Amino acid sequence: MLDQKFIYKRILGYFFSGLLLVVPITVIIYVIYSLFIFLDRLIPIAIPGLGLLTLLLGITVLGYLGSSFISQPIRRRANKMLDRVPLVKTIYTAISDLLSAFVGQKKSFSRPVLVKMSRSSNIEKLGFVTNDDLSMLNLPQGKIAVYLPHSYNFSGNLYIVPIENVTPISANTAEVMKFIVSGGVTDLGHKEEDETVEIR
């Protein structure tokens, strides 16, 4: 006769295995559904999904106009208006630059590195070099800007560190970001590696 504890452990193991399968899929479906409903309601149209389609089409058209010659006078006028409200301009610029870092032509999170946190410690953190020219801050040569994302959170901190404390990593940038956000529990596997970008 099988040991009762063994049976309970086996059943509990199956339950947790089921959770590992069901919970991520459920969360993804819920997030996608909630996002769909939210976006679809931004433009209230009686036919489900047509509001979202109209929104996506409108954003695409604005993107086309924004990347063409039509955008220049509009941008100049918008910048003049934003100059009158410095706080709004700061928020707008920060959000715009952040989005550009992920989806723009000039992606900023493309250089994964290991950062040694201090000379007296062997503790290192994973991050991304976002700027290696800090002359506008009047800082001494040999310092660069490194963004260190937080685990289990879509936030992070920007650190200015000596360049000798930074070691470039030859790894896929999306996998590195996923590894950091997951707190290091995601298996990086043997994905196709990005070329290591040298730090000036």
Rank of each mutant, 00 (worst) to 15 (best):
S182H: 13
I45A: 15
P24K: 01
S96Q: 11
K116L: 12
F15H: 06
F15G: 10
F109M: 06
P44L: 10
Y147E: 09
S182T: 15
P112L: 00
D83Y: 09
L188S: 02
L148E: 10
D40V: 06
D187M: 10
L137Q: 01
I32T: 09
G58C: 07
S135E: 05
G58K: 09
V113G: 03
H150N: 14
A46F: 00
I25D: 01
S118H: 12
V197A: 14
I180T: 02
Q4A: 14
D133T: 03
E193P: 03
I28F: 15
P73T: 07
G156A: 09
V22C: 06
R76I: 09
I45C: 15
N138E: 12
D194V: 02
L53E: 10
I160Q: 00
I25V: 11
P86D: 03
D3W: 01
Y152D: 12
F15M: 04
A174G: 04
L114G: 01
K89G: 00
P162R: 01
T196R: 14
A145R: 03
M136E: 11
L55T: 12
S155Y: 05
L35N: 10
F154P: 08
P168W: 04
N131S: 15
S108H: 08
V22E: 00
R119F: 04
I95Q: 13
I47W: 08
H150K: 14
S151V: 11
G142H: 05
V181E: 14
I91R: 01
S67F: 07
S170N: 04
K143E: 03
V113A: 04
S17G: 12
D194H: 06
V27L: 15
L134G: 04
I43K: 10
E175K: 02
L114P: 05
P24E: 02
Y14C: 14
E175G: 00
K143M: 01
E195D: 13
G66L: 06
L137P: 09
P162L: 02
L21N: 03
S100T: 11
P149V: 12
L126C: 05
G49D: 08
H150P: 00
E198Y: 07
V27F: 10
D3Y: 07
E193W: 01
S182Y: 09
V113S: 03
T54E: 13
R10Q: 04
S71Y: 01
I29V: 14
E164Y: 01
F128D: 03
S108F: 06
I180P: 07
A145P: 12
K5L: 02
T167S: 00
M81F: 10
G189C: 00
T186I: 14
Y8H: 09
K178L: 15
R111Q: 11
S100A: 14
